[in-house]
Amino acid sequence: MTKLSEIVLNGLALGSVYALIALGFVVIFKASGVMNFAHASLLLLGGYVIAQLHDELGFAGALLVGVVVTAAGAGLIEMLFIRGLGKVELHVLTILTIGIDILLTTELVRRIGSDKLSLGDPWGAKSVEVFGANVAQARIAAIVVAVVLITLFFMAFRYTAWGLSMRAASEDREAAALMGVRMKRVQLVAWCVAGALAAVAAVFLTASPTPGLDRTTGFVALKAFPAAVLGGMDSALGALIGAMMIGLTEALAAGYQSDLDALGGGASGIAPYVVMILILLWRPTGLLGSKELSRV
């Protein structure tokens, strides 16, 4: 039982981090209609900035700067590359973000080199006991922070002018424009929000008991893709549910690996993708994704 509760808690913590990333995917997708592959490098950027500054500014200061820098970086990508393109094929925008990701990742990896950087988070290796299970404080913090941020996010989405603009625009861009919604500003804010969430996710991805930030940290963003997709790419709630499913699936597949020997071992890495494919076969636009309206 301890094992199960440990695994479930860790799965939820993992899911919380994925949720922060997946929400970023969804917000950007709603605003700009693109699956942002540059998210991996934005995450790395946030982590890198925090790692560089935490000695000087302390963790909180570094976190703040990291969040702001990453948000600004995401906003800059929107302004420089995405906004100007206007209407192009979906692939083209997607591949463009891959190009941006390659550029940014190359530079960050060159700077990080072989280093494993600590982000100076205050939790260290300390643990707490929950339901008889030992769980790292950082993991609990991940769940708490994610719950707070995601609640804030949903409230903003529901009640602020920006949230209403986002939802209106993703329903019908032109009608939203006719209401006087400043689309450029809404999109810019969306990218910035996504960037900020990615920077926070970077903290929990690298906090103990994980090994600190290194050049491959950004890859984790790839696992949030299935989360965003299986929930439905234009549904924030779907992203949240998807992220939790992926986190739990992964943790359970790893924790009960010995019972899954038939799959060849090490199946936890691909479990998210298998779950995603199964769900997409059942619902081609994810759990809560809206059906595409086809127009001739």
């Binding site: 692939h91 997709v229 060849g264």
Partner: peptide, 29 residues
């Protein structure tokens, strides 16, 4: 084709992403 026939746009893109990872796992095993 059961997948490619049903999915559109980015949903298909990410589903094919899964092929790479699942494929790698199968190849190694």
């Amino acid at each position: 084709s059961p997948i490619s026939g049903r999915l559109r746009g980015m949903y298909l893109g990410i589903a094919t992403l899964a092929l790479v990872f699942i494929g790698e796992h199968v190849m190694i095993n």
